[in-house]
Design a protein around this nucleic acid. Structure first.
Length: 226
DNA sequence: CACCAGGCAAGTA
DNA sequence: TACTTGCATGGT
């Protein structure tokens, strides 16, 4: 047994936040994506981009039949750039997608099934070795595409924890340390995949509504709870 | 007009 | 290790 408290607050506040947000907003239905491959490509495209713009890019790819690893691997990179343009950073992201599918081919013979057979720490390490895949994107792929229990930490997660005084210095804290707080409170087991999925979506949602620069805490379900 | 969105890599000190 | 900067479109 290790960390029982976070800044002198009981660890049980993590699941409590989840309960409050869940009853306030209900099922969020993340991640939007018809296939596992689409979720993975979406995870790369959504890096520092608005989801509405990512949808346009994915729609463009889909209409050209470019949502399979094999097709993406064969496609001209300039075509790829033109199709994903709405998602922004298209030069960077086209290269990232190319590097990812090359990795998927070499390491897993373009098979998501083979990718799923890896255990979490192994696949996470491999993903982090791919150009363009950082910690959040790697964990998003593992959770939302491969359905394995890792908690995704993003900027909103940090802002919410910071704003409500749950974790002081959350904005600066290392990714794995923030993640550990959630893993210690809600164990990384297959039964909790749905909880991790929903929890991350709920944090992004409440963050968007109430945790931007201008404090608009009015109506926030977490107001006066912590 | 300014600001920012479900980050990351590369460069600098 | 700890900052800083470039990457780019589209909505508010």
């Amino acid at each position: 047994m290790q960390t029982e408290t976070i800044n002198s607050r009981p660890l049980s506040e993590i699941p409590k936040i989840y309960r409050v947000l869940s009853s306030a907003y209900g099922p969020m239905g993340w991640w939007p994506g018809e296939t596992q491959t689409e979720v993975i490509i979406g995870a790369i495209l959504t890096q520092s981009a608005a989801w509405t713009n990512v949808e346009k890019a994915i729609s463009n790819l889909k209409s050209r039949g470019l949502l399979s690893f094999e097709a993406l691997d064969k496609a001209e990179i300039d075509l790829l750039k033109s199709l994903i343009k709405p998602a922004g950073y298209f030069n960077q992201k086209a290269k990232k997608i190319k590097e990812f599918v090359k990795f998927a081919g070499k390491e897993f013979n373009f098979s998501i099934r083979r990718m799923e057979r890896e255990d979490i720490s192994s696949i996470r390490e491999k993903l982090l070795g791919v150009f363009g895949i950082g910690e959040e994107t790697a964990d998003s792929i593992i959770l939302y595409a491969l359905n394995k229990p890792v908690f995704v930490v993003d900027a909103y997660t940090r802002r919410v924890l910071e704003r409500h005084g749950i974790v002081k210095g959350a904005l600066k804290e290392k990714y794995l340390n923030i993640q550990k707080i959630f893993h210690c409170s809600i164990p990384s087991t297959p039964e909790n995949v749905e909880v991790y999925n929903e929890y991350h979506a709920l944090l992004v949602n409440v963050g968007k509504l109430h945790c931007r620069k201008k404090p608009s805490c009015e109506g926030c379900p977490l107001k006066d709870v912590f």
